[in-house]
């Protein structure tokens, strides 16, 4: 019995450290004014890692739709999304985080996928079921990278 108590409190402590988790297993976050003020991980992301996630076709794949002049070395930037040049000057960090986590909060009709969401989706392939497109760390890294696009 004491063993179990220790286990339970250890698990609770981990949860507290990581921030609270919602029923779908994702980190909870608070939306205010179409923005998320708090980092999903509780700390700042890594911009260099974020650039990798941003360009990786199996992760962010952001260049499928957006253009970034600083990434001209990467082939085939899409054109259906706006250019992200100077995006850090147009939006706050909290607004960028909202846009990456779930852009539909801002524009319900947008084509842009929500990169940190698993609820309310329809017929997701088994490989991707109940998994967000990015981890909280990857979201924060991408936000950190976007902040470099001044």
């Amino acid at each position: 019995m004491p063993k179990l108590t220790i286990l339970v409190s250890a698990a609770a402590a981990v949860l507290l450290l990581a921030g609270s988790v919602s029923a779908d297993g994702l980190v909870k976050y608070k939306v205010a004014d179409n923005a998320i003020q708090q980092s999903l991980t509780g700390k700042a992301g890594d911009a260099a890692e974020g650039e990798k996630t941003f360009t990786n076709r199996k992760l962010g794949n952001c260049l499928a739709c957006h253009q970034v002049t600083a990434l001209a070395r990467e082939p085939f930037h899409g054109e259906i999304g706006p250019s992200l040049d100077g995006v850090a000057g147009r939006y706050s960090e909290a607004q960028l985080r909202m846009q990456v986590v779930n852009a539909k909060v801002i524009n319900p009709d947008t084509i842009m996928p929500a990169f940190y969401r698993t609820d309310g989706l329809h017929r997701v392939l088994d490989n991707f079921k109940d998994k967000p497109m990015l981890t909280p760390e990857q979201v924060e890294d991408v936000v950190a990278y976007l902040k470099t696009l001044k």
Binding site: I80, K104, I111, P113, A114, L121, H122, R123, V124, L125, F128, K131, M133
Partner: peptide, 17 residues
């Protein structure tokens, strides 16, 4: 109707874009 992890409907690509 939106579908998949990317949560897109046919119309998002073929009508809107």
């Amino acid at each position: 109707e939106r579908r998949g992890q990317l949560d897109m409907a046919c119309k998002h690509c073929h009508e809107d874009n």
